[in-house]
């Protein structure tokens, strides 16, 4: 948080007390803490993962944003960086990983492939973007995005976190903690359980 924000939080502080007291909102402190310690899931899919590693390494260094602690377990992570081509064979696992992450959780789609299929979109084993299955918060364009672009995307995630209010966050409300996404099945082709009815009408359309 900036010193400026501390000194002029929108409440009047008498001049003699400026710099001695800080008035702020719980949201700000809470979000500041959360946004400065985002733990990404250690999970690389394809070429983009290499640029993700470079971003975490010496030259670009995501540690400056409190993001260097990559967790190999989804249960300990806050952010899923989908770094690469999402294939039909892999999507059930990605959805399962997403379901296993505790709230609050964020998804960053890194690169053309994760955002919309990318150069391999026409392939028979490629999913046209990870947002067909899981909700994405930030998209980073590029093939691969440079580490700078990824850093920019990560800062966007931080911005998003900073704009949240703990009072009306979904994960503090009554009801189930997370929304489970049905895991796609591998049949003769990928089957999305949410669309089974749709598949039938589609199959009719195909026959016609």
């Amino acid at each position: 948080m900036d010193v400026k924000d501390l000194n002029s939080p929108g409440y009047e502080i008498p001049p003699e007390m400026q710099g001695l007291v800080a008035i702020t909102t719980l949201d700000k402190v809470y979000n500041w803490g959360r946004s400065a310690s985002v733990w990404p899931l250690m999970f690389g899919l394809a070429c983009c993962a290499i640029e993700m590693i470079c971003a975490a390494a010496s030259r670009y260094d995501t540690a400056r944003f409190g993001m260097e602690i990559m967790r190999p377990s989804p249960r300990q992570s806050d952010l899923m960086i989908v770094s690469g081509t999402v294939t039909k064979k892999m999507i059930p696992i990605i959805v399962r990983l997403y379901n296993q992450m505790p709230e609050p959780k964020y998804v960053l789609a890194m690169g053309a492939c994760a955002s919309g299929g990318g150069p391999f979109k026409e392939g028979y084993n490629v999913v046209s973007g990870v947002d067909k299955f899981i909700p994405v918060d930030v998209y980073v364009p590029g093939c691969p995005p440079t580490p700078q672009a990824l850093l920019n995307g990560l800062m966007k995630v931080q911005e998003k976190i900073k704009g949240e209010h703990w009072k009306n966050s979904r994960w503090y409300q009554k009801g189930p903690d997370t929304v489970e996404i049905p895991v796609p099945l591998l049949g003769p082709d990928l089957i999305d359980p949410r669309k089974i009815g749709l598949a039938q009408t589609g199959a009719k359309g195909q026959e016609a």
């Binding site: 039909k88 299929g117 979109k121 026409e122 028979y124 490629v126 999913v127 046209s128 067909k132 099945l185 591998l186 049949g187 003769p188 082709d189 990928l190 089957i191 999305d192 669309k195 089974i196 749709l198 598949a199 039938q200 589609g202 199959a203 359309g205 195909q206 026959e207």
Partner: peptide, 28 residues
């Protein structure tokens, strides 16, 4: 968009006569 030409609106095609509701997943 390629999706707009596909009956499922997605990168998917099933063999003729395939019914996902009657389909029983095998142990892959």
């Amino acid at each position: 968009l390629a999706e707009s030409k596909n009956p499922f609106g997605d990168n998917i095609s099933y063999p003729a006569g395939f019914d996902p509701e009657k389909w029983i997943p095998e142990d892959a």
